[in-house]
């Protein structure tokens, strides 16, 4: 465990807890894309298939349970909670799941480390995580109202993957094993997707104006 990975995991943890807290306290999911949240639940499900088979560390197991629990709780709140669901903007959050899931699945079937179920699912989860934010970014562009918590949520989510890239650089130089190129590419693509959001987020923060994304 190195500082970059720990910082990345903590940033990721804070991002999902910020979102869960926002939805739980103000009982609203305005500006949040259910599609993205469902894709994240799928990412964690396909990523953590080894949760009960391979024990790596207490930290690893606890964090996996937290990520699974929080992502499914967020989906439940937006879908089922009698108050929260009313603030869900389903007319604007129209990104089709299969436009993202199918290409990632095909890609994982074509490009992977080993052709085993767990390995293909793990690779699928890497590709899916890289693009799962798209429905959320599309929704932000459409609704143009980015409240602070949603802005912070997307920012933290991007920051966590950027920290993971630093972690892979560090591990590349300090550990005998290697970081597979699939991990590199999926992680870099994911971080690049946030790049323009980061640009507008810093602009709004620097000029102390409300965050606006160009249409």
């Amino acid at each position: 465990m190195n500082i970059f990975r720990l910082a990345g995991d903590m940033t990721h943890l804070v991002s999902v807890l910020v979102l869960l807290l926002k939805i739980h306290t103000i009982k609203s999911c305005a500006g949040i894309s259910l599609k993205t949240q469902e894709l994240y639940a799928l990412v964690f499900t396909t990523r953590y298939l080894d949760l009960f088979t391979d024990y790596i560390s207490l930290y690893n197991t606890v964090m996996k349970l937290i990520f699974l629990g929080s992502s499914f709780s967020i989906v439940w709140y937006i879908r089922r909670h009698k108050i929260v669901r009313r603030s869900y903007d389903k007319d604007q959050d129209t990104f089709r799941h299969y436009f993202i899931v199918l290409p990632c699945l095909v890609l994982a079937l074509l490009i992977h480390h080993k052709f085993t179920f767990k390995e293909v699912m793990w690779t699928f989860s890497l590709y899916l995580e890289a693009v799962a934010i798209l429905p959320q970014l599309v929704l932000l562009q459409r609704t143009r109202n980015i409240d602070n918590l949603t802005g912070q949520y997307v920012f933290l989510l991007g920051a966590y993957r950027a920290l993971y890239i630093l972690n892979w650089i560090y591990r590349h130089y300090t550990e005998p094993h290697y970081v597979h190129w699939i991990t590199w590419i999926a992680g870099i693509v994911q971080t690049l997707l946030y790049a323009d959001f980061f640009y507008y987020y810093f602009q709004s923060w620097k000029n102390n104006v409300k965050l606006q994304l160009p249409a």
Binding site: D9, I56, H180, T183
Partner: peptide, 10 residues
């Protein structure tokens, strides 16, 4: 061949 290192990551 060596195992990829990222299997212990989240």
């Amino acid at each position: 061949d060596e195992q990829p290192v990222t299997k212990d990551e989240l």
